[in-house]
Write a protein that binds this DNA or RNA. Structure first.
Lengths: 249, 249
DNA sequence: GCTCATGGTTCGACAATGCCGAACGAATCG
DNA sequence: CGATTCGTTCGGCATTGTCGAACCATGAGC
């Protein structure tokens, strides 16, 4: 890739920085974070405000992300072929398993959730579309890591989320090997206590893994004595195969 | 507002154009749409690809929105105070009314949906967060229009969505006046046949309307002979008042 | 209530930066 | 098998954005 445009690159860096935390940031903070002069930053910020990507708090003068980004993000979902082709299958998976269904793809070293169906007859859940899951501590992530062609060796330190999270790189690599050979991944209370997950790979027409689909639910429903109920694994793998077949057309 | 940065402004225009339709666009199409030389556009596109805001289809060479935007959009939701403060109330509203609950705000002449709770015990609904609703054909939109300080007179032509959509500017203005005096808005099959909606305004600590909350459901559940059941109106107004009180703290 | 530090904002001069248009190779269509 | 149309590259020119200092407003500390 050749040269890139400085100001656009800087604008993107500002947006990433604003997105990195729930806090609003001031010009000075941003300038320090990016190592740029205040004046330069202000010019870019003014433009970002003008196009609606950033909003300025009238009271404090600080900056935060703007509403236009929300709309652009949801437009991305319309364009995303993997998502549009798999929505129906995810619904069906949630219906059969009576658990929440998830579809994710690898992005910047995380699992980006691109679809999420709530567990039937259970509202009061917050939607996770657009959020990141850790690759090493989620079933979706293990599937995607296991088939990642660039095979980044899961840069340590692996952050522990519960006492069951796999944080040893060697142990994780063994786990990924197991995922590759048997064709699906499990996650047993490694992200949230009391929750387990199952996932399987989705491939495009060339056989490349482009995403993963899975379910997530309470350990007492999906497993007994630490062993997953295999009918749930079948549901997930069926769904993954169905979408893969769909994408091949 | 002073001068803005050309290349950033152009980059934003590209993103908006890509988001305007579900189709992928090529360099030439974009250049024609924006009236810019191909070479110039290519440079910006290359940068947008580099920062992940745009993806290029390896097969056709055409461009589409990128996954980073989805993540930025969901980050916006974390920052948005109106949303974080009203999530619990929306859940409660959906629970009491047993209908889907919605929260929206005015953005670029549309209603931007910033929260959406599914109807209890009814999955198989697609999430609408980040999408636009028309201001003149939705209950949320009528509330927001009625209290819009800039009072743009709903630029005709008003697009009809069903045979009940109000398309006469005069009739709409009367309707808005009614919304202002009684404090809530109704929408009777004006957007989708068989569906009606109710909405009420949310105000910030200064009394300015910053959003609207409402419910939407089948006409046979929410109304009889074209008259809304008033207990649903109470649910919605209660929720709106509760959030307004919450924001005042 | 004064001082001082820190915040967001403006401005103008310099030159680096990104813009443009023409030219290239690949792919597609008739 | 020509003739378009596409995405991409490149180098010269001047437009454009960068930079740092200066400008106010705000708020904390004494």
């Amino acid at each position: 890739m050749g040269e890139t445009i400085q100001s656009v690159e800087r604008a993107a860096a500002i947006l990433r920085l604003l997105a990195s935390g729930p806090r609003q940031l001031g010009v000075a903070e941003l300038a320090r974070g990016l190592g740029l002069p205040k004046g330069t930053l202000h010019g870019i910020l003014r433009t970002l405000v003008h196009v609606g990507f950033v909003e300025q708090d009238p009271a404090t003068g600080k900056y935060r992300l703007g509403a236009t980004l929300l709309h652009l993000g949801s437009s991305y979902l319309d364009v995303n072929e993997l998502r549009t082709r798999s929505i129906n299958w995810a619904d069906a998976l949630a219906g059969r398993s009576r658990e929440s269904a998830w579809i994710g793809t690898l992005h910047e070293g995380h699992v980006l959730v691109i679809h999420h169906v709530f567990r039937p007859d259970d509202s009061m859940q917050t939607l996770q579309v657009g959020t990141y899951l850790p690759t090493h501590a989620s079933a979706l992530g293990k599937v995607l890591l296991a088939h990642d062609p660039y095979a980044e060796p899961a840069a340590p330190p692996l952050r522990p989320h519960t006492k069951h999270t796999v944080i040893d790189p060697g142990a994780l690599e063994e786990e990924l090997e197991r995922v590759r050979t048997r064709g699906w991944a499990a996650e047993m209370e490694e992200l949230v206590d009391g929750e387990v997950a199952i996932a399987a790979p989705i491939k495009d027409r060339r056989g490349v893994v482009v995403g993963a689909i899975g379910i997530r639910g309470a350990v007492e429903r999906l497993a007994t004595d630490g062993a997953l109920h295999m009918e749930y694994v079948s549901y997930v793998r069926d769904a993954a195969r169905a979408i893969t077949r769909d994408l091949a057309r």
